[in-house]
């Protein structure tokens, strides 16, 4: 079912609905995320989307996009490389980097790229396969 080198791709967009829901959930109304004048003054093109919305996309990927639902996230790390703006189309790519049969564990390395092919975030996720 899983082999080292297997690649999964998925498109994600942070819509205004997703953005609004995330603010409701996190209560993070920092001006970088909610005040365009503030964000522009700090050198960005506009309000910057919360990086942790990408973590929610990772949750969806692991929970819904793999060939089995018998999965649990053990750990994940993420590095934010470039800002993501509202309605940016993101290309997500994950590759199996390690498979450890002994402990039923899989490691993915992943990246999110924007429409300019710039990496906006990347990292690793370790999951377990439930018996």
């Amino acid at each position: 079912m899983f082999n080292i080198g297997d690649v999964y791709e998925q498109s994600f967009t942070i819509t205004s609905e997703t953005y609004g829901h995330f603010i409701q959930l996190s209560k993070d109304r920092n001006p970088l995320h909610t005040n365009s004048e503030f964000a522009i003054e700090k050198g960005f093109k506009g309000i910057v989307m919360h990086g942790n919305i990408l973590n929610a996309f990772l949750s969806y990927f692991i929970g819904e996009c793999l060939p089995t639902k018998n999965v649990i996230i053990h750990s994940q790390e993420i590095q934010f490389k470039n800002p993501v703006y509202l309605n940016d189309e993101l290309n997500f790519k994950a590759e199996i980097d390690g498979y450890y049969e002994s402990v039923k564990s899989i490691e993915f390395k992943y990246s999110f790229r924007n429409s300019d092919s710039k990496i906006v975030a990347k990292g690793k996720i370790q999951i377990g396969l439930l018996q």
Partner: peptide
């Protein structure tokens, strides 16, 4: 139980070996 998995993975990586679940 969770860090045990991470320890086994780290040991397998370091020594470039693979265990079986029976061995563990």
């Amino acid at each position: 139980s969770l860090t045990h998995i991470q320890l086994v993975v780290a040991i397998e990586k370091y020594f470039k070996i693979r265990f079986t679940s029976k061995e563990i």
